[in-house]
Design a protein around this nucleic acid. Structure first.
Lengths: 192, 192, 192, 192
DNA sequence: GACTAAACGAGACGGTACGTCTTGTCTTTCG
DNA sequence: CGAAAGACAAGACGTACCGTCTCGTTTAGTC
């Protein structure tokens, strides 16, 4: 897989088909939305995409990786880093954007499924953290670090976990909504 | 549970074997600890317990339900409700006890697996919430309700989700430990 | 097992319920006629008869034995031994009676099932031969032995097998009917 | 079998493995000979053949079909059609060859099992008749048709059923052997 | 009228095989 | 050589019955 930095052997053979790749990612999201994550199978994705199973196995190690890539492709990659000059406003904006992303149909259920998969598969846990979770934590940490004196909790560590902890706990358990009231309460708790 | 005082239909047929039930719950925990939750199968539990598969399916609808019952049986049922007269002390004691329970070998990995299963199976999600999560939330809510004026967050709702949110987020993502420092920071954040 | 001829030790305990026995035999025939022999199970017979499984196992070693006993009970036990004074008439009468018995609904399919079971279970093969097949062979042999000079085949042995062989072969393979024409041809073949 | 000379869709995908097919048929015969037909299971055949269960279910609808194909493969396909110029000699030769085939170890017990299965499964009954029984009947009918004037019974129909009826009846009931004496008696009965 | 003892309905139990499903690999042909 | 097709080994799934067992209940003698 790794090759010498200088000499590019110029890849031989038929190149990867981007049409097939797109079809597979699309079929994955379709199926997860239609029949649910657990009921979605590699075989089903292949059939739905008009692809061979081997083509999926050639490029992704598991169903979860396909779905994560599909999510990262289709979902808003960009996490806005608001900058209104004070913590309250920035945090409230961040939470509003995050909640809005989560309200897009299917997004939350996919995230729950991927978080579940990460609990059952250590390899994917690492992938999920590095390609999804860590990025969101970093953005929030960056935001908080701008106003260290306005943040009641240890900016770099605890506050981030408090925000995402509450968000994920509510998403995973489903006992309470992710709504404006929550955003407001969180801001109230964390900002002086 | 309660029955009409006089008439009791008196159960017919061979009664359920409590030895078998115990063997199954034991085998389930054993296997999950040994080979992991995903690798544990109903078939394996049955073989390990010297039981028939049907005996498991007769009493539990899924592997997750077996493991949850085993956990509730073997794990500390009791969640202590400390009462030292002030929020800081009580909360710190509660967190210490909770972390201690989590440090018992295998407990955290079982909890992660059950939370994962709850994401993939709506029926089990309800069972897990009602037979595990809700109870813990209630205990903490009860504790917080004793000192409404000392708690910075909305005692009944947000504070509970903050505590368990952070705990679960760290347990599920594994990027940071559940240690004394965390307990202390949480107390600092939530109590005046 | 053997006991003195005169003194009956008088059996203790609850005596066998003939109502239950009848219900079981009836349920067996009912089910075989309704859903087929293979689909009939001991469990189904018990439920249908309002009996416990153990009650069946206490008195019969297998489903086939139950069905055979039910057949011998309900079906015409008596095989008429016609005596018109000459082989042609007696044989024709015997065949007519035999075919008539076989035309009773369900009888042939039960016989086919029992013959099948006899091929798969050596113990039942013996029971089936002694409690059903042998008796029919004996009656026919007795009939033929009355006219040794009118029978073209070895009266005691071959002719019997020819008659029952053709009957069973047609019943088992189903390629041709058991009808009057067959009876006539057989008589023509076997009697001078 | 025959295909249009020019257009051939050319089958796609991995072709069926003939090695696996052979292994399965061999394992089936092995097991039936070793432990008996009833005790032989699809699961056992698969394990014995080093094959997956699905591979068996992909190509055969039931255990009986596997065993029948194995029998037709390994057993003498060819039924000799003797031609000595007169019915007595030809019939005697046919019977001798048939009995010889039946004396090969395991053959008779397999045939009995397949005939049993045919009684319990209407679909297989048709397959068994068309792929086994009918062929033998046809050969014998062809033989008899050559000497219509020498055959005492209705050549095309009754005589065939008499021969195979006696054979099968003795094979299934087991009360008498299939030996030279029987062959001789049958010839005596059927040929002028 | 209590006591003994076996039959009975009910249904749990340890097993085993079923036929289906999915996984991840392999072996073809086509483009 | 990538990709579609689909066969393959492996093995768990959840179901169905098997034949055995353990209950409480019933129904006959016997004391």
């Amino acid at each position: 897989m790794l090759r010498a930095s200088t000499s590019e052997p110029s890849p031989t053979g038929r190149p990867r088909s981007s049409a097939t790749r797109t079809a597979i990612l699309g079929a994955a999201l379709d199926l997860v939305a239609t029949i649910g994550y657990r009921e979605t199978t590699i075989e089903g994705i292949a059939k739905h995409a008009g692809a061979g199973k081997q083509t999926i196995y050639r490029w992704w190690p598991s169903k979860a990786d396909v779905v994560l890539e599909a999510l990262n492709e289709n979902a808003a990659r960009e996490i806005p880093l608001p900058d209104e000059g004070n913590l309250r406003a920035d945090l409230e904006a961040f939470l509003a954007a995050t909640f809005a992303a989560g309200r897009r149909p299917g997004v939350i259920s996919v995230l729950r499924a991927l978080m579940a998969e990460a609990q059952l598969d250590a390899r994917f846990a690492k992938v999920f953290d590095q390609n999804f979770l860590r990025h969101r934590r970093d953005v929030l940490a960056q935001l908080l670090r701008r106003y260290p004196e306005q943040c009641r909790a240890d900016s770099g560590t605890l506050a981030v976990d408090v925000v995402f902890g509450v968000l994920w706990y509510r998403a995973l358990v489903g006992h309470r909504n992710l709504d404006h009231a929550l955003a407001h309460s969180l801001v109230e708790l964390l900002a002086w």
